[in-house]
Amino acid sequence: MPSPDTERRLREHNRRFYDALWRDARLVAPERFNTWPIVAPLAAASTRRLEVAPGLRPRLPIEGTCFADISLPALRALHEAGGEAVHALVSALPFGDAAFDLVAAMDIVEHVDDDEAAFAELARVCAPGGCLLLSVPLHMSAWTPFDEFVGHRRRYAPEALLALLTRHGFEIERSAAHGMQPSSSRLLDLGMWFLTHQRKRAMWWYNRVGMPLSVRFQAPLDARPGLIDVERVDTVLLVCRRTG
């Protein structure tokens, strides 16, 4: 069982890191991400939508979607763009049971110490038959200093992730290899150094060069039924269905 002190320190690390990042970053529209061909039909069929901890990289349509995040700079930008913004933790969502038909949690559950509580909340607010769009990093053997830098608590073993989803009433419908992290460790090290020591210059390059190029050259997602072979996959995107 995670200690409250550990959870508090991890949450504060994430809040400081992402407040600073989103304060200087630009909002990227969800239509620009390679997740959009998967998201668009799901969103069109769902009037009750929630995305948890999107920062300024939302994947669900901004207008008509409720966004829950701990970063006030991100929430302000999402509100100004037409979204409903709520200050909340993934492990303590201020919504009623079965309140949403489509829930997105992209790259967030690996940041919290008590992921059982996070999945319990995602399951609670997702209506039976509803959809969960989930993205997580895989394989602790692939852990790098970048994981610690961005506030990760873990990478998931595929069998542990599947068991976690099953315990909380989710079945995997489709999945795809996913992620925008550079594969070059030297590039990651350089990025971490600049964010730490030359933040203003780093954010200038991030907003004007790094992020636009990352979005432009994303490979299309190859979503397949069930759970794909993830042996060589760094991050997986899952489309899950909430059972009864």
Rank of each mutant, 00 (worst) to 15 (best):
H178Y: 15
R26Y: 09
V136W: 06
R15I: 12
V230N: 08
R186Y: 12
A98F: 13
L213I: 10
T6L: 14
P212D: 09
D5K: 11
R11D: 12
V52S: 02
A68W: 01
A53G: 12
G83C: 07
P128E: 10
R11K: 12
P128T: 13
V39N: 01
G179T: 05
L93D: 03
P137Q: 06
L78Y: 05
P158I: 08
E12N: 12
L221T: 07
F17I: 02
R9K: 09
R155H: 11
D234W: 13
L42D: 10
L221W: 00
R241S: 10
V39E: 00
A120E: 10
A92L: 11
V209K: 04
G96Y: 03
L162P: 03
L93T: 03
L50I: 05
R76V: 11
A160T: 11
G55W: 00
G55S: 02
A123C: 08
E7Y: 06
F119T: 03
A127H: 05
W143A: 00
L238P: 01
Q198W: 15
R155Y: 07
Q218V: 08
D147E: 08
F95M: 03
A45E: 15
A120K: 07
P37D: 08
A81G: 03
L238M: 00
T243P: 04
A142L: 11
V239W: 10
D222Y: 00
P137M: 09
R16K: 14
L132A: 02
R15S: 08
H197K: 12
A127L: 02
A118Q: 01
L164N: 09
S71F: 05
A105L: 01
G55P: 04
W36V: 04
H13T: 02
A202L: 06
D189I: 07
E51D: 02
A68V: 08
A176L: 06
F146P: 07
N34Y: 10
P137H: 02
V215D: 07
R9L: 09
S135R: 08
A117L: 09
E148W: 03
A77F: 01
E173V: 12
A157Y: 09
R76P: 00
R224V: 14
H79E: 14
M192H: 06
D5Y: 07
Y156I: 06
P41Y: 02
H111Y: 06
D114Y: 02
F67H: 06
T65K: 10
L187Q: 12
E171H: 14
C131L: 13
P94V: 10
H87Y: 14
P2T: 14
F170I: 05
M140W: 11
D24H: 13
L50G: 06
P58D: 08
T47H: 15
H152T: 06
C66M: 07
F33R: 15
P37V: 07
L89G: 09
E7H: 11
V39A: 02
V236N: 01
E80I: 05
L134K: 03
W193I: 11
A68D: 10
